[in-house]
Design a protein around this nucleic acid. Structure first.
Lengths: 177, 177, 177, 177
DNA sequence: GATGAATGAGGATTCATTCAT
DNA sequence: GATGAATGAATCCTCATTCAT
């Protein structure tokens, strides 16, 4: 007999995850203290532990969500190439800075946490499956690699010419097809 | 007149950096304690602080060296494409696991440490300059991105078919050239 | 005019005390959280605080009850020695494990809580008074000590030969009388 | 190649254990914070963890030492009964308040920590073995129980007449022999 | 009355760094 | 130079208690 609605619980969880995502994106997982998240969320320390078993659990949730977001709506496009180039533009967008930062943090964690590594690998495999009908695995892997590398470069270089990058990719791929 | 030879100093520094690189690659920067490095190096805590001002300084040194290694010998090849494909094979090699892990750690740090971010950006710029004679910047960026993404994917997936990946890249690029 | 019957209040209190006694006996006062008692009792946290002012108050109630139980029916036996030996058998009984555990917890609390210490002392004094007609104080103290020590030893050693213990006590005392 | 002498290490350990014993005897294991021990010892928090893996480890060390002290010199006396009565006097002595308090704490821990329970049981078994030549096990158990009970009663009642207690025990036992 | 979500102070422990020897 | 013992601030987490519903 819960005292609050399921919606309330969902909102609270969202509130915590948003605060955590903000902190993590700004300072990395390990330079972010639970206290930072407490402050950013406006909640209390104790309450956060009713939603997550600990910091590790929160990191895992953030990373899982990151990959889920990335895989959403995959392979449903009429024009796969155009859709892919759209993804490139999206990840390089200035507004996606938080997403990029979280991504880089998540990748670093793959080194020491098997579950995060599994999520990362699954993320790539999802792409391979989604585009399996229109391209062979190695090519998809290359395109995923391009996406990953663009994420990095866009993060480091505000003046990166995204359109030129996308155009170069388009040219490489179109000739092939 | 220094009490110990410059060579001795260099060796000691090397010894510390090697120990640190090993620890960092295994557990990440933040899960590695100075004590871990002390143990792995076989030296004492006090001594390490005579070579580095602190942990941050060591991380910086490790990251700087990582990028230096990557830029070494760039643009001197007769056949740039073949040289590039060789780099792809090298970074995906099982023996390069430590290099891959360090790279991912370094990338994560770009989020919060401007100097590491500058090193990362410089690393890409070095490639652009080195290959500026044979290809336009956007294309080089794409190829660097492919390298970066392959580093990630090879790290996550032991069964990745590197040759198929390299072949796919070769095919894309050769048609263009 | 109370909203609920006095009986209801008593039952609730009993329910809480039983839950607390179970938890305390299993894990000790300090390894038992209020949440543990909440769960075990099937009631809510808020309700428990309407019956007890806090954890300390509950511990006090448990300890008081423990001593009350021990003093009940004292000195009414026709054959005091036989009655005493029966008490020895009872406290060493496997079924009395919870009583033994609570006793040991209560004794430990006498160190820091004067009220619990007073209860413990009163417990001994009650025995002295109850058996004052049939034995001098020092002897009663010795017999109480035997009871206390048996409680400990029975708790630590499942294979303790209770009958042999009781026989040894009986022999010592009978010769004296 | 330790920087300090083995004696220094032993002294430090002693220093910590003494501070801990003082705190534990005053407030019990669980009302004593590591910070309390840090203050009482005059050392730093970090240093204490170089000697003990944690609070649990310290409790275990304190309890082990308590039982060791109790078993020291057992069974070497010419007159076992006189020696035993001496032990009774010693544990009831006002100066032994700390020993009594630690004992009660240790007994309470037997409920939840198998290793402490094993130490307690072993403590009794040691007595049984030490006096096995002069008395049967049940009688020894009874005498140990008397000791344990006296510890409790002396702790609770400053005005306890120890000599009368000891005399009562002496009388019971002497008649038997 | 009854609930359980929410609080936040307090606790155990770690770890980068220093400094006496 | 070299050591490693020592420091103590900072971290993650728990839990007794309260109070809005």
């Amino acid at each position: 007999m819960p005292k609050v609605s399921a919606e309330h619980l969902t909102n609270r969880r969202r509130q915590i995850l948003d605060a955590a995502a903000g902190c993590f994106a700004r300072n990395g997982f390990h330079r972010t203290s639970m206290q930072d998240i407490v402050k950013e969320s406006g909640l209390s320390a104790g309450l956060i532990y009713r939603y997550f078993t600990g910091k590790e659990d929160m990191i895992l949730a953030i990373v899982a969500e990151w990959h889920t977001t990335r895989s959403a709506g995959l392979g449903t496009a009429d024009d796969p190439l155009a859709a892919y180039l759209g993804l490139l533009r999206a990840i390089a967008d200035p507004a996606a800075a938080q997403q990029r930062n979280l991504g880089m943090q998540a990748w670093a964690e793959t080194v020491r946490e098997p579950r995060i590594r599994a999520l990362a690998r699954q993320g790539v495999d999802d792409q391979i499956e989604a585009f399996g009908a229109v391209a062979p695995e190695p090519l998809i892997r290359v395109l995923v690699a391009v996406y990953q590398g663009l994420l990095l470069q866009a993060s480091w270089d505000d003046s990166l010419d995204v359109e030129a990058f996308v155009a170069a990719v388009g040219e490489l791929v179109r000739r092939r097809v």
